[in-house]
Every structure is written in structure tokens, then in C-alpha cells.
């Protein structure tokens, strides 16, 4: 997958230029890591087609989603990208099952809904409304819903940051399991170094719209201000509970 994006973004401190040019291999899980306001979420939104860059090229599996030089800009509906939002974004008027069914294409069999419900361990909660689910359960529904569309890439926008620590760890295992099972390409936005280390094979560290460091989590975090996190994380998350 090719991602080349350029856009001037507004921050409270003033405008800054986002500019990234990366290649993500099929089946790879990469993370965009950095402080809030550095442009991480905008990158995901531009890949999904929810926002347009001033200049760029987005290509997935040989398919051009955005190309400013050729004037191509597919709407989000035409891009095979699964998006998992931080605030879950489940439809409050639909049950768990209906939320998943909503992701099916016309004529697609509802049998897959049951399969995905099982995949995220939500069997038995089909008829519940989102308001009657815990945060962790909501995010499982959102994950299953995004995966149901057969996306070429799964975009995760700080998916676990609204959850308590224990639930977050459990869900990280869950995401890892789903990733290994489906072999899907994933792009994760996070400001949690533990999460990045646990889930991704490659990290892009962003500062004010630019990649300042990239590589395996170990290479990126060692020698940086995040090294202390990395050293603690090596001893397992439990060792740093008091951090």
C-alpha cells in the first residue's frame, strides 16, 4: 500500500504542513505514533477518504484511491477501508446484530454476521442495543463491523484509548488475535507506547506532520524520550502498572 500525503493542517499553535510518504506491505501492522495534534488522525481520515489532501497518492492493492495528479478521489464508500473510531460510532438505533448487518453489501448473506460475532466473542449479545454494552464490548462490535466489509486495510484511530487499563490490555490481545487470524493490513494510530509495541511491527514516529523516526518499535523507542517506557514494557505491562 502506497501512502503519499501533503496537506496544511491547523493546530492551536498555528498551521503546519503534514507531509508523509510511506509504503505499507500487505498484511503488515504499522503504527502512527505521536502527540495529539501531530496529524495522525488526519492521515487515517485521508486514507479513508473522509478528508482530502492537497496533494497525494493513495494506492491499495493496485487500486488507486486518491491521485491528485490524475484528479482521482474515490469517495469513502468506494474505498475498501475499515475504520474503527475512538468513540466506537455504533448506531444507537440498531442492535448489535443490526449494526453488523448494516455493513453487509446488498445480497450478502447474513450468515457472516454470526461468524463475525463469534470471532469477537459477542455471541449472545446480538439483540442488545449499544447503550447496554460496556466500552470493551462496543469496540468489539465496531471491530467486527469494520472487518465485515472485507477491507483491504483496517484503520484504527486510537481504538482503545477510551477504555480502562485492564479492558485495554484484553482488547489488545483480541486485536492481535484478529490480526493473526485474518492477515489483514492494519494502520494503528496511538499515543500509547505499550500498545504500539505490542501490536505493530513497524512504527512511524510523527512530530508536527512529519515522520521523524521509523522502524521496529525497539529501534524507534530506544534512545528516545520513550526509552523508559520501552524498558519497562519489556518486563511486561504488569511491571509498570504503577507508572
Amino acid at each position: 500500500m502506497k501512502i503519499f500525503l501533503k496537506k496544511t493542517l491547523m493546530a492551536p499553535e498555528g498551521p503546519f504542513d503534514l507531509s508523509i510518504d510511506v509504503e505499507v506491505r500487505d498484511g503488515e501492522c504499522v503504527s502512527l505514533f505521536g502527540r495529539s495534534g501531530c496529524g495522525k488522525t488526519s492521515i487515517l481520515r485521508m486514507i479513508a477518504g473522509l478528508q482530502a489532501p492537497q496533494e497525494g497518492l493513495v494506492k491499495a492493492d493496485g487500486e488507486v484511491w486518491f491521485d491528485s495528479s490524475a484528479g482521482i478521489n474515490l469517495p469513502p464508500q468506494k474505498r475498501a477501508a475499515g475504520f474503527v473510531f475512538q468513540e466506537y460510532s455504533l448506531f444507537p438505533n440498531m442492535t448489535v446484530e443490526e449494526n453488523l448487518k448494516f455493513a453487509l453489501r446488498r445480497g450478502e448473506e447474513a450468515v457472516r454476521v454470526q461468524e463475525y460475532l463469534g470471532l469477537v466473542g459477542l455471541k449472545g449479545l446480538e439483540r442488545r442495543y449499544p447503550s447496554k454494552l460496556s466500552g470493551g464490548q462496543k469496540q468489539r462490535v465496531a471491530l467486527a463491523r469494520a472487518l465485515l466489509r472485507h477491507p483491504k486495510v483496517l484503520l484504527l484511530d486510537e481504538p482503545l484509548s477510551a477504555l480502562d487499563v485492564q479492558t485495554r490490555w484484553r482488547l489488545q490481545d483480541e486485536v492481535l488475535r484478529l490480526y493473526e487470524k485474518t492477515g489483514i493490513t492494519m494502520i494503528l494510530v496511538s499515543h500509547d507506547p505499550f500498545e504500539v509495541m505490542k501490536l505493530s511491527g513497524r512504527v512511524f514516529m510523527l512530530e508536527a506532520g512529519r515522520i521523524v523516526k521509523s522502524g521496529g518499535p525497539q529501534d524507534v523507542f530506544c534512545g528516545s524520550e520513550w526509552e523508559v517506557f520501552f524498558q519497562s514494557a519489556k518486563n511486561g505491562p504488569r511491571a509498570v502498572r504503577g507508572f
Binding site: L50, P75, Q77, G82, F85, E87, S89, F102, R105, A146
Partner: peptide, 10 residues
Amino acid sequence: ALIEAAYTLG
């Protein structure tokens, strides 16, 4: 965000 979620679901 809910409108955008529906768009990303096609």
C-alpha cells in the same frame, strides 16, 4: 462521526 462511519461502511 456516525455519518462518517456509515460512509466507511459503503
